[in-house]
Amino acid sequence: MTAVVDKPTEQARSATPEFEAANERQKRRRGFLLALPAYAYLVLFFFIPLGIVVAYSFATRTRNGSTSLSGWNLEAYRKLGEPIVSDILVRSLLLAVITTVICLIVAYPFSYFLATRSPAVRNLMLVFVMIPFWSNFLVRNYAWRVLLGNDGPASQLTQAVGMGETNILFTQTAVVLGLVYGFLPFMILPMYAAIERMDWSLIEASRDLGASGFQTFRNVALPLSMPGVIAGSILVFIPSLGAYVTPEILGGGKTTLLGSYIVVQFLTARNWPVGASVSTVLMLVMLLAALAYFRAGGRTL
């Protein structure tokens, strides 16, 4: 009898700071348990391999092409200063920047257009933007090879309008074209999200206060859509910098870029430390870019 009476009294004891803290701890523990599979996955397949790459970048290549982990040194990083490597670095950076800028110029007006359509049109056009993802990236690059080939449709078109043959396949132009094509959706989506979220009465207010269309874009629309611009730029810049498939297929291996260089170091030259050091530098550049984005106050990746 007493037990029956005691039980509710125990449940209804008054709240204490200790009780609150314990409750808080329990909540945190539950959150951690839920995230555990993701943590385990990240540690196993991301942090550990990353550590191995960084470790190898300080290792030494032996004469027979194997890698000696004894005797840490900066030899591999010193090699990055050599003209042949730094040229590749600069060229890759330049190509990534050009790709990003072209994507920006193409995507901004399109995103603006998209954000001002009716919801039905908007969704339909967003599907169009995503359609390329339904087929394999490699296949799409080969498709461009056909399009840009010497007797391909692109060349036939320019011949038809009397501009002569186009021979841009296996040039940097073709690589940029392929990269822009491949990464444009990554620019459009965050940009569209940012513009769509914008308060349109601010645009009206700007016009009402005497700003022309261009002044409004420059002083109101652009600053307010900046998070989307930065997010999109990083999403395009990072994969462009390390791109491998597109430069290989459309560039024909004529001009080496970072991605190809890394592959060559690991597979052909068997110089793992150099491959690892280039990878590490690339990663640092990307990390800096991402940090710049978060510093700029963006939160939507």
């Binding site: 308060d199 009465s201 601010l202 009206e204 207010a205 700007s206 016009r207 009402d208 206060l209 005497g210 700003a211 022309s212 002083n219 109101v220 600053p223 307010l224």
Partner: peptide
Amino acid sequence: PDKRPVNTVFQNYALFPHMNVLDNVSFG
């Protein structure tokens, strides 16, 4: 609107969130 001698106080004020008070007021 920018060619008319009128100005509007909007319902939700439509203040520019990325500018401070002084910049908002001197915008026009």
